[in-house]
Amino acid sequence: MLTNLFDGLAYGMLLFVLACGLSVTLGVMNFINLAHGAFAMAGGYLAVALVNTLGVPFLACLPLVFVATALLGLLLERTLYVHVYARSHLDQVLFSIGLVFMAMAAIDYTRGSRQVFVRIPEWLNARFEVLGASIGAYRLMIVLLCGAIALALQLVLSRTRFGSRLRAAVDDPVVARGLGINVGAVFALTFAVGSGLAGLGGALGAEILGLDPSFPLKYMVYFLIVVTVGGSASITGPFLAAVLLGMADVAGKYYLPDGGGFVIYTLMIVLLLARPNGLFVRGGR
């Protein structure tokens, strides 16, 4: 029971790091980016290349992956995405699905279609007992690391000038622009950080989620759930949504093994029907 809760917590926090970039894309620019998972996959495969082939220590590869995928995100945002923001939702869906297909085929071509693993250090494979729950060191590290990231994001958003600009842009891009905030630049930077975090999540999650070329499609729904259920008004919303989703998914797979992904999809339909604008949305929006 406790073990399950803890695994769900780790899984959920991982989902949060993977998906939080998407909540900004959707929130600020009202852009439906189905290709968010492609950045996570890029991060995962980069980690595999760095650790397994080049022998970079696992912990050292994480910041490298973050920076690399952030740069990739910035590049794509400035060259491609920027042309599609003002288009219809249908165009955005088509465009991002196109990117997903390209990313999947490219990875399949260069890396093969088999599932790959990041070689994690021996000491992270340890397990220990706390209050009757068996806790893996790797999952503990994920909880601590993702918790720290969530805390840092919350601090940046609430305490810094950049954070207040971003919040202003999310709440009302037109007025924010009128106040002299460069919404485009704020957004590009956020997109880059979001992609970087997705890449980091992909590197961390390769062990838990499994990494193969179908990754972006497999987890697309999960990211979208986190964002739509959590809303984009704060960090707390997506965070709670991700943790709930992670726990529900682990519990569902454990107690209803025949249900499979069933629990999650049904849960999502019900949630969307009950609260079309997200669970944790402030009033008046």
């Binding site: 088509l94 465009f95 196109g98 297909f101 390209m102 999947m104 085929a105 399949d108 071509y109």
Partner: peptide
């Protein structure tokens, strides 16, 4: 044989960028 999905994706992206 295996990678035609790439070209389908490219087609989609170009279609949208060029303006459907």
């Amino acid at each position: 044989p295996q990678y035609w999905q790439f070209w389908i994706g490219l087609l989609l992206v170009l279609l949208v960028l060029a303006g459907r």
